[in-house]
């Protein structure tokens, strides 16, 4: 199980990952909101669709699902989603680092928990799990 050293390493990875993710999100949103980059959905039209149920919103706007936003990475919304995705990947990286470290030091139970958690998070991130109204 992780001792103080592992906890400090985890904290360091978490700190840097979060800084990068939040920095990218803030910069991307600034560019998006102030029309420095082109939006996929014109901002004037956004208010007409953000009150719709998800399925109708997707049907009307053609907004991407899964990792489809990577295709339109130059659009404002996709740049923001890049920042959001980075934030949602920070924990995966921290757990991966922790699991590998535990494996190296023979902490099998700790490594197992960390690596199963990585699999769960990657499964969630993969877009394989879907549902809908």
């Amino acid at each position: 199980m992780p001792g103080p050293d592992e906890q400090l390493v985890y904290a360091r990875w978490l700190d840097w990952g979060t800084r990068i993710g939040l920095g990218v999100l803030a910069a991307a949103f600034f560019a998006y909101a102030f029309a420095l980059v082109e939006p996929a959905i014109p901002l004037q039209e956004l208010a007409a669709v953000w009150s719709l149920p998800l399925e109708r919103y997707l049907a009307i706007t053609g907004a991407p699902t899964g990792w489809g936003w990577l295709v339109s990475i130059r659009k404002g919304e996709s740049l923001c989603l890049l920042g959001i995705a980075l934030l949602a990947l920070v924990t995966v990286m921290c757990y991966l680092r922790n699991g590998i470290s535990a494996l190296g030091s023979g902490e099998r139970l700790q490594a197992g928990i960390a690596l199963v958690q990585v699999v769960v998070l990657l499964l969630a991130a993969s877009g394989v799990l879907t549902g809908g109204h």
């Binding site: 907004a63 995966v92 998070l121």
Partner: peptide, 27 residues
């Protein structure tokens, strides 16, 4: 930070994340 990450990915992948709602709220 762990529990919310896995659920957040479901919303991201379903397209249920509006940057115009998320970013000002986080900031």
């Amino acid at each position: 930070s762990v529990v919310d990450t896995s659920a957040a990915w479901i919303y991201i992948n379903r397209g249920a994340v509006l940057p115009m709602l998320v970013a000002p709220s986080i900031i």
